[in-house]
Amino acid sequence: MAVLIAERISLEELSSRAETAGFLQTAFWAKQKASFGWKAEAIRWNRGEKEGVLLILIRSLPAGLSLAYVPGGPPASAGQEDRDSFLVELSMELRGILPLGCFFIRYDLPEYSTFDTLAPVFPDILKKAPLDIQPPDTVVLDLREGYDALLPGMHKKTRYNIRLAAKKGVTVEIAGADRLKEWYELYRITALRDKIGIHPLSYYENLFSLLSDNKQARLKLFLAYSEAELLAGIIVLFHQKEAVYLYGASSNEKRNLMPAYALQSAALQEACRRGCTSYDMFGIPPSEDPDHPMAGLYRFKTGFGGEIRHRPGAWDYPYSRLIYLFYRLLEAARKYYYKSWKKR
Rank of each mutant, 00 (worst) to 15 (best):
C272N: 00
G52T: 11
G248K: 05
G37M: 05
A175M: 13
P136R: 00
Y69T: 02
E242I: 07
Y204H: 13
G72N: 04
E270Y: 09
K156A: 09
I174Y: 02
K181R: 14
S320R: 13
E229A: 12
P285Q: 05
E81I: 01
L150T: 06
Y69F: 15
K167H: 09
F208Y: 04
L24W: 11
G305V: 09
I235G: 00
L211Y: 07
Q134E: 11
L24Q: 11
L57F: 07
S251Q: 09
E288Y: 10
D213A: 15
M281Y: 06
K50D: 12
R334T: 03
Y279R: 02
K254A: 15
F36P: 03
L143G: 11
G248H: 06
A271G: 11
K157E: 14
I125W: 08
H199Q: 14
I234D: 15
I58N: 09
R179W: 06
G283V: 07
E182Y: 08
G283N: 08
A243L: 04
L221C: 06
Q32M: 10
P290A: 10
R255F: 10
T190H: 03
G283Y: 08
R159L: 13
Q80I: 12
R159M: 07
V139P: 02
P62N: 06
L94K: 05
D82K: 11
P318G: 09
G64C: 08
A262F: 05
G153Q: 11
G72A: 04
E12N: 14
H292V: 07
S340E: 14
E51M: 06
G233D: 08
A21F: 14
G296S: 09
K195G: 01
E145M: 14
